[in-house]
Write a protein that binds this DNA or RNA. Structure first.
Lengths: 251, 251
DNA sequence: GCCGGCATATATGTCGACACATATCCAGCA
DNA sequence: TGCTGGATATGTGTCGACATATATGCCGGC
């Protein structure tokens, strides 16, 4: 598992020094992936300090590439930084999550609009197949939209690709992807919304198939608004007994 | 041991070594401002290579903070990077400019919607005053919306602040600000649109004053769409002598 | 005369080190 | 006992330097 290519001359780390050379070629890119995973896995909790020496040692790299990764995540609003105080994982209050969903509504609404103009029949078929998988898996697990999340993410990401707008794609699939992932991890409630989300997805695909930009944007925005409202309702209530379990977050 | 306290931070004063300590406290932040200015001023043209040693020498700083600035602008889609080939200023084809305007339409539409919900009377008054200045200056210079650009930028930025959504604000005023500025510099046509833009601004403020989110979003989106369409029309026509000096392989 | 390979030169990616700011801790004092 | 001040320690910001990959120019071969 630890196959070291000997072009790494002075690596003294006993940890995973090679990071993940899957697609990223530079250590800084790998550090970005690793740091993202650490944050999304909940290991670095919101508000936790992102220590450069500690993470550098852990990753077996120098601080230089790690700093680049930190700066990137800071630019993506995943980390917050104060000039001499270091970086911390952003704290997503319910109000901020609502704000993020508003941004999503705006961007993904436009994505659906643009996608409706240029989407191909093959892409429609792909989305239909995704819908079928959503339905099948949902019926398996009872629509608890727990395992359907990856399919949901694929669904939204794929529609973004269909928009042919590189800036919309980059925004949803790169810039905001980590932040959205943080929202999902933060809030793992969203009760029985699986079936309704599935129905809404179907309506979005219908609008795309009709090549109806207005309807595509409308259905997408309502879909995201509905998720946001369910989220809002489920967040404002269980805050009563949150004080006792704030310590053990059950990652 | 005592490394002689090389407080030579000001080093050779031949260049502007201190950068701009106005608001930024770190050299990296100053480098970001300086680099942004260099790009927006057109000194570094689209497609031009962003050389780290050259800029570091010019700014009188090390490569480390300059790299952070470069990574930030790369994250904002102002620079494009290839792993071992360095960074270059993004090339904004007309199609890409159109795409950027679509993102603007989505984001600023949502900004207007949210602002209409929470805007105060004082902020309305501020926008009215801005409109008055737009009108006064436009009448001075004949609505050639050349000097009104800063007022236009202030107008949109101020409405973003009114939305109270920090992510929408950050997106428009920080992340995409440089890219939008690049669009403006790229395309200095936009003929007699000053008056119409002024009228559209007035309708946006009207909707905000009515606290009508739907109308606010609609007027804002139409405003940006109109700008985009004028841009599209004025781009596809001129530019006859642009592609001339490329043939050299004619054997 | 043109194309390909090799040596050189430059630039990027990465590393280690240092200066200063901030946080922490302990001692002294009201 | 609680607060303030200084000494220590840690961490960030910045710098210079090295290794390697890419680009460039020269020479030889076809």
């Amino acid at each position: 598992m630890d196959q070291m290519t000997d072009d790494n001359t002075s690596q003294d780390s006993s940890q995973d020094a090679n990071l993940d050379p899957a697609e990223a070629q530079t250590i800084a890119d790998s550090a970005l992936q690793r740091l993202t995973e650490v944050i999304l896995s909940g290991e670095l909790k919101p508000g936790a300090k992102v220590s450069e020496p500690e993470l550098a040692r852990r990753f077996g790299i120098s601080r230089a590439p790690l700093r680049e990764a930190i700066r990137r995540l800071e630019e993506r609003s995943v980390l917050t930084r104060a000039p001499r105080l270091g970086a911390r994982v952003v704290v997503l209050s319910p109000a901020r999550v609502q704000q993020i969903f508003m941004v999503r509504e705006a961007i993904e609404g436009m994505i659906a609009r643009e996608a409706a103009k240029v989407i191909t029949d093959a892409e429609i078929a792909h989305l239909r197949a995704n819908l079928a998988r959503q339905k099948a898996r949902s019926e398996e697990i009872g629509f608890t939209n727990f395992l359907t999340r990856e399919l949901d993410s694929d669904f939204h990401t794929y529609i973004a690709q269909c928009s042919r707008n590189e800036f919309l794609i980059k925004f949803l699939c790169e810039d905001y992807a980590t932040l959205i992932g943080l929202c999902r991890r933060h809030l793992r409630q969203v009760p029985e919304r699986g079936y309704r989300a599935f129905v809404e997805h179907g309506r979005i695909v219908d609008a795309l198939e009709d090549r109806d930009p207005d309807m595509a944007e409308l259905t997408m925005r309502r879909h995201i608004t509905a998720s946001r409202q369910v989220l809002e309702a489920s967040v404002q209530e269980p805050r009563r007994d949150a004080a006792r379990s704030k310590r053990k977050r059950a990652g």
